[in-house]
Amino acid sequence: MEQIIANGLYLGAQYALIALGLTLIFSLMNVLNFAHGQMYVFGGFVCYTVVAQLGMPFILGLVASALVLGVMGALIERFLFRPVIRRSKRDESTMLLAAGIAFFLDAVILLLFGEKQRGVPKIVNGVFNWDFRLIMPYDRILIGVLAIALIAGFILFMQYSKAGRAMRALAQDRMAAQLMGVDVDRYSMIGFAMGAMLAGLVGALLVTITGVNLGMGGPTSVKAFLMIMIGGASVISGAIAGGFILGMMESVGLSVLSSYGDVTYLVIFATLMVFLAIRPQGLMGKPWG
């Protein structure tokens, strides 16, 4: 039982971090970022290149992933999303752009890093063992703690910094924020860069444990969508709650339902659809987002 909860928390911390980036982008620009999973994979590969190929310490890999993805996010917002949002008749057009970027990143990853599964050597050795009731490798604990620290840092940033306040204002009401003198374009760009950076950071964290490969992007995006649907799109607390709930459900499901075959996700999806039929805006979302 303790094992299941610990696994759920560990998974949930990473999921929440992925969902945070997605929800940040969604709340600021009303863009469903299909490329989020690809950004995550890209971050993992950047970290792999820095750590395993160049032989730098892990912390540098983390920083490099964050920087590369942050710059990439800013450029994507400035040169792709901004002009399309301005000129298109319907909001949904951004989805094609996002899907196109997802394909594009897939292609870039394929050309730059190849299609092999990549991982970096363990950063900490040893296994935490509590009387065989709870077994957890130290590196997983470290990654989980780092992820939670990043989430806390993100919340503090959004709550107390000037940029965070501006972005929250934007998410609430774009027009009103603009009238109050918030530089909408600038903060959209910063927000997109931060969202991409978060995706890259999770990728860099996870490359030490599960490794990354090209095919992980799409499924990760779908999972991230699930999380922000559970918690409610465009709400930060919702993304965190959604991440932890999905992590916990996955962990419980994998151990309880394992005797029925591979049905965990089927049960999760079915539950989610019933849940959304009753509460369409998710746990904490505003009605009609």
Binding site: F26, N30, L32, D91, M95, V222, F225, L226, I228, M229, A233, D262, V263, Y265, L266, F269, A270, L272, M273, L276, A277, P280, Q281, G282, W288, G289
Partner: peptide, 21 residues
């Protein structure tokens, strides 16, 4: 009854449901 992105995401999940079923 869902709208916008919510409907989009539920239908996306529906494809996965069909495959898993």
């Amino acid at each position: 009854r869902l709208r916008g992105v919510y409907f989009a995401m539920v239908t996306l999940v529906l494809t996965e449901v069909a495959r898993l079923t």
